[in-house]
């Protein structure tokens, strides 16, 4: 009965993914027909007007939204497993904001010195920020037993990091502000094909590594002592979990800025639909779910008030935050 639900969920996510990729390809400031798009895709036409739109603008953006959305949602699931709390996520714990701060520093520094920042450097900067904030959160979690207080602390740390980032952006060189400002609000628009290559490698390797940890993760869900009793090396396992989660959320922040609530809302929806929290099911489904969720939000972000584009984080908050609120109410009610 349950395995049928899981299969149905795979099918549903697959269909939605294809549908949203297609819609993102066709719909925009200049809409095209299905026939145009298919012709361009299969003939590798990169020269015509539509060809340029598809290959240079929409395709990298679609791939970015799908890969980064998936990464974010898996990152959230890993954090939830780590803290044994379904409300944990990279955004709410301030980890994304930490990454944003270090990336902003790196960008301001590079831009004022007229240097280009390689995408790998961006990921490393974001990773440094993520790990730093994660360290702070872990220190706090050692002191406070209550998960809700930990979450509040995470939100506060996030605010501090955002405030410093705002400060930097305000005083950055005029010509760079627009660029930096867009990024710090969150957007999939500035991702290039070069970025996509790096993103693909990092995200695919990290998600597969996380998937390979499914077995110890399932024991860890039963509690730390139980996991130790069946032979899980708790220390090594915790480090791997935090590292993978940080790499994934850092990659997202490096290229698309901080994106809110995907890391909590998507795993929660998947858990509710499949009625399981087994990592071996959750990790692939969260990845697909995150991709679908971000493609959907990006489609709206681009088109809802066109030509004005809304930041992706605004859209994910509009759809993600209510899911999180519902979840909190349901948990309290039980």
């Amino acid at each position: 009965m349950k395995s049928n639900r899981i299969k149905a969920c795979y099918v549903l996510l697959g269909v939605l993914l294809l549908l949203l990729i297609l819609m993102n390809m066709l719909i925009g400031s200049s809409s095209m027909t299905m026939g145009d798009a298919l012709r361009i895709l299969f003939s590798h036409d990169t020269a015509s007007k539509y060809g340029k739109i598809i290959w240079d603008i929409r395709m990298p953006r679609i791939l970015a939204a799908a890969l980064l959305g998936g990464a974010l949602s898996v990152s959230g699931f890993l954090l939830q497993t780590f803290f044994a709390n379904p409300i944990a996520g990279p955004y709410i714990l301030g980890i994304s904001s930490g990454a944003k701060l270090v990336v902003a520093c790196t960008m301001v520094f590079a831009l004022t010195h007229g240097m280009m920042v390689h995408s790998v450097v961006m990921i490393i900067a974001a990773f440094a920020g993520s790990i730093a904030v994660t360290g702070v959160i872990l220190l706090i979690s050692d002191k406070v037993r209550s998960m809700s207080i930990l979450i509040v602390c995470g939100v506060m740390v996030g605010y501090i990091c955002s405030a410093v980032t705002e400060f930097l952006v305000t005083f950055a060189d005029d010509s760079n502000i627009v660029n930096l400002h867009n990024w710090s609000m969150g957007s999939f628009s500035a991702v290039s094909w070069d970025n996509i290559r790096v993103i693909t490698v990092v995200v695919v390797i990290s998600v597969i590594s996380a998937f390979m940890l499914s077995k110890p993760m399932s024991a860890f869900q039963m509690g730390e002592q139980y996991a130790r009793s069946v032979g899980v090396d708790i220390k090594a396992f915790r480090i791997s979990l935090i590292t993978l989660s940080s790499i994934l959320s850092a990659t997202v922040t490096a290229f698309a800025g901080p994106i809110s609530f995907v890391g909590i809302a998507v795993p929660h929806i998947i858990r509710s639909v499949t009625t399981t929290s087994k990592p071996i099911v959750m990790i692939p489904q969260c990845f697909l779910g995150g991709a679908v969720f971000c493609l959907f939000c990006d489609l709206l972000a681009r088109n809802l008030f066109a030509p004005t584009e809304i930041s992706i984080s605004t859209m994910t908050a509009v759809f993600g935050a209510p899911v999180v609120i519902m979840m909190l109410i349901r948990r309290k009610a039980r």
């Binding site: 497993t81 069946v230 929290s277």
Partner: peptide, 18 residues
């Protein structure tokens, strides 16, 4: 763990577990 099984007083927090 093939010889020794434990049942300690630990609360399980994970949701959606049959």
């Amino acid at each position: 763990s093939k010889f020794r099984a434990v049942m300690l007083t630990e609360r399980m927090t994970s949701e959606q577990m049959t």
